[in-house]
Amino acid sequence: MTNIAIGLLIFLMTFCIMEFMAWFTHKYVMHGFLWSLHKDHHHKDHDSWFERNDAFFIFYAVISMSFIMIANNTSFWYGWGIGFGILAYGIAYFVVHDIFIHQRFKMFRTTNNWYARGVRRAHKIHHKHLGKEDGECFGMLFVPFKYFKK
């Protein structure tokens, strides 16, 4: 297997692992000890377009950039696949969560296929709980099949 093929495999694996990391971080960190940063996302008791919750994007962006910089400056070339895999997931998360679901930019408003409806439905169920307890549906791109049923 060539280095390019290995790099692409690492990229794809990292992208998929990031869905688990997003679920884990959302359930145990955002709805856990860092609820103080995440709760404004559930309560909307602020006038700013920015939320304290946006700090989590910065955290993963720093990790992504660190892997890319390490790969660029050392022989650890695997860092390219890891760094760009995290970046690609961050972009997908931003498009799905912030643009498509929460409409922070007014785009994709009329998207109405089975996947889009399922993801929106799952996220709506997640937001029906205003507190950090009793939450459900912490993932983003892979949600339980029950939300895809009519």
Rank of each mutant, 00 (worst) to 15 (best):
M1Q: 08
M1N: 13
M1R: 10
I4C: 10
I4E: 07
A5K: 14
G7P: 00
L8T: 00
L8A: 13
L9K: 09
L9F: 15
I10W: 04
L12I: 00
L12A: 09
T14E: 08
T14D: 08
F15D: 04
C16W: 10
I17R: 04
M18N: 02
E19Q: 12
E19A: 12
F20E: 10
W23I: 07
W23V: 02
F24P: 05
T25Q: 04
H26G: 10
Y28V: 06
V29W: 03
H31W: 08
G32A: 13
G32L: 13
F33Y: 15
L34V: 01
W35V: 04
L37Q: 02
H38E: 01
D40Q: 05
H42W: 00
H43A: 11
K44T: 03
H46T: 14
H46E: 06
D47Y: 08
W49K: 05
E51N: 12
D54Q: 09
A55R: 00
F56I: 02
F57N: 10
F59M: 07
Y60T: 00
I63N: 02
M65W: 08
S66K: 06
S66N: 10
I68P: 00
M69R: 09
M69T: 05
A71I: 05
N72A: 14
N73Q: 08
N73C: 08
N73W: 07
T74A: 10
T74K: 12
S75I: 02
S75R: 11
S75G: 05
F76E: 03
F76K: 13
G79S: 05
W80A: 06
W80E: 03
G83T: 08
G83M: 05
G83F: 11
F84K: 06
F84Q: 04
G85S: 02
A92I: 11
A92D: 01
Y93S: 11
V95S: 01
V96C: 13
V96L: 14
H97N: 13
H102K: 05
H102G: 12
Q103E: 14
F105A: 13
F105S: 04
K106S: 07
M107W: 15
M107R: 07
M107A: 11
F108R: 12
T110L: 14
T111W: 15
N113Q: 13
W114R: 15
W114K: 15
W114E: 11
Y115V: 14
R117F: 11
R120S: 10
R120G: 07
A122H: 10
A122S: 08
A122M: 03
H123M: 14
H126D: 13
H126P: 03
H126A: 06
L130S: 06
L130Q: 13
D134F: 08
D134W: 03
G139S: 15
M140K: 05
L141Y: 02
V143F: 05
P144Y: 00
Y147T: 07
Y147H: 15
K149T: 11
